[in-house]
C-alpha cells in the first residue's frame, strides 16, 4: 500500500469522524465549521488521488470541492445566520437524542452492506466512504432544521464523490460534482428565500 493511499484513507477516516459530529452537534456555528474542515479534507484526498493517477479531472474536482464546499457554502450559511446572530449563537438546533447511537449502529450495518460491493469491485477502502454516505443520510433525516439538513446534504455529496473516486474514477466525475454543487445551491436558494419570508425553516409533517 503506497503512502498516498494511506494518506487518502487517513483523510477519509477523519471525514468519517466529522460526519459523527454532524449527527450530534447542537449549534449551527460548529456544524458549519466542521463542514468546512470535512470538505477541505476531501479536497486534499482528491488532490492526492489526482497526483497519483495524473488525473486532471480529480485536480479540478479537488478545486471545486475546496472552493464551493469548504469556502462558499459555509460562507453563505454563516452570512445568513450572522443576520440573526443573537438567535443562532444560543439557539440549540433540534436533534434526536440518540442520534449518535443510531450512527454507530448504522456504521456497523454499513460495514456489512458494503460486503457485496467489495465482492464486485475488490476495493476495501470504499467502505470508509460508504459508511460516511449512510451517516450523512442519517444526519439529514434526524435533523428538523433545514440549514442543518443542508450540512447533511453537502456531507452526502462529499462522501458520494469520494466513493466514486476511490472505486472507479470515471470520466464524468467532474460534471457530476459540478451538478451536485448546483443542486446544493438550489437548496440554499429555497431555504434562504423561505427564511426571509417565514423565519428558520423547521420541516414539519405535511398533512394529507
Amino acid at each position: 500500500m503506497s503512502v498516498v493511499t494511506n494518506a487518502v484513507d487517513l483523510l477519509g477516516m477523519a471525514s468519517l469522524l466529522i460526519t459523527f459530529i454532524f449527527l450530534s452537534a447542537s449549534y449551527m456555528h460548529s456544524l458549519i465549521d466542521w463542514l468546512s474542515v470535512q470538505s477541505a479534507a476531501i479536497a486534499l484526498a482528491f488532490t492526492l488521488m489526482g497526483w497519483e493517477t495524473n488525473s486532471y479531472s480529480l485536480y479540478a474536482l479537488a478545486g471545486i470541492t475546496f472552493v464551493f464546499r469548504a469556502l462558499v457554502v459555509p460562507y453563505i450559511l454563516k452570512k445568513d445566520i450572522r443576520d440573526d446572530e443573537r438567535i443562532w449563537r444560543y439557539r440549540e438546533i433540534k436533534t434526536t437524542h440518540h442520534a449518535i447511537v443510531w450512527g454507530l449502529i448504522v456504521a456497523v450495518i454499513a460495514y456489512f452492506l458494503y460486503q457485496p460491493i467489495y465482492e464486485v469491485t475488490g476495493v476495501w477502502s470504499g467502505s470508509i466512504a460508504f459508511v460516511m454516505l449512510l451517516l450523512s443520510f442519517l444526519a439529514i433525516v434526524t435533523r428538523r432544521n433545514a440549514l442543518a439538513q443542508i450540512v447533511g446534504y453537502v456531507s452526502m455529496e462529499n462522501s458520494l464523490l469520494y466513493l466514486a473516486a476511490i472505486l472507479s474514477p470515471m470520466s464524468l466525475i467532474l460534471e457530476i460534482g459540478i451538478l451536485l454543487d448546483i443542486l446544493g445551491f438550489a437548496l440554499l436558494a429555497v431555504v434562504l428565500g423561505a427564511r426571509k419570508r417565514y423565519g428558520p425553516l423547521e420541516v414539519e409533517e405535511l398533512v394529507g
Binding site: I117, L133, F137, I140, A146, Q149, Y153, M156, L160, L163, A164, L167, S168, M170, I176, L183, A186, L187, V190, V191, G193, A194, Y198, L201, V203, E204, L206
Partner: peptide, 23 residues
Amino acid sequence: IEGAWRYIIVASSGLAIAFLSII
C-alpha cells in the same frame, strides 16, 4: 416550500443510491 424541500432531499438521496449503481 416544505413540499419542495422534502422533494429535493428525498429525490437527491434516492439519486445518490442510483449513483452507486452507476459506479
